[in-house]
């Protein structure tokens, strides 16, 4: 009962913050509110016993991405441009997708239902044998690092590659790579044009 009460209050907080984000035009307020939204969803993950996900959401969603948005905001005007045109089509698409998702939720298995399909495939084997085989009490860690070690290697490579890509884009000419010798093309073009004119 208390879990239900906590869930309802958290979800209503999230809805209020989402509406405030939609109607606000000040970028700083929007960024801070999206950080608060992430913090509340982290609290929801704790309530769902997914503490690992809550950790990540609190640190990345509420902390790191807020900092990145603030850093990006330094290059933007403080207020969002007000859009006075009626936006019927996006509203219709949002309402349609939202109602479709709400309709689909009714067909999902109940939360934590042991008979649902996802808990029937390999999960029983992991739960039954992981402690006897590995002597590690946290099944999440054994699945992540041992049973699914190859997938986690892929995830690590993805993080590395994504970081590398963003760094290459952002560092531009400020990186430590040696400066390429500047060739001033426009000067050369004007020189050539001058020569043409002289010849004529």
């Amino acid at each position: 009962m208390s879990t239900l009460f906590i869930n309802i209050s958290l979800v209503s907080f999230m809805v209020v913050i989402a509406l405030m984000i939609t109607f606000s035009h000040r970028l700083f307020a929007i960024i801070i509110m999206s950080g608060a939204y992430s913090l509340i969803s982290a609290a929801m993950f704790v309530n769902l016993d997914a503490v690992d996900v809550a950790f990540t959401e609190a640190a990345v969603g509420a902390g790191f991405s807020t900092v990145l948005f603030l850093a990006a905001m330094a290059w933007l005007p403080a207020e969002e441009k007000r859009n006075k045109a009626l936006v019927i089509l996006p509203l219709m698409i949002c309402l349609f997708t939202g109602s479709l998702l709400m309709w689909a939720v009714a067909y999902l298995p109940a939360l934590g239902d042991p008979a649902s399909v996802v808990h029937q495939h390999v999960a029983p084997r992991y739960l039954a044998e992981s402690y006897d085989k590995l002597h590690i009490p946290n099944v999440v860690t054994t699945v992540l690092a041992s049973y699914r070690g190859f997938d986690t290697l892929g995830e690590t490579i993805v993080i590395f590659t994504a970081g590398l890509g963003v760094l290459l884009i952002l560092m531009g000419k400020t990186g430590r790579s040696p400066k390429p010798k500047k060739v001033d093309i426009s000067a050369k073009v004007s020189e050539a044009r001058d020569e043409d004119v002289n010849e004529k």
């Binding site: 990345v60 900092v67 990145l68 850093a71 994504a162 970081g163 963003v166 760094l167």
Partner: peptide, 11 residues
């Protein structure tokens, strides 16, 4: 990676 991204964004 996160630290490098922060430094790239902030700088």
């Amino acid at each position: 990676t996160i630290l490098g991204l922060f430094m790239a964004f902030a700088g």
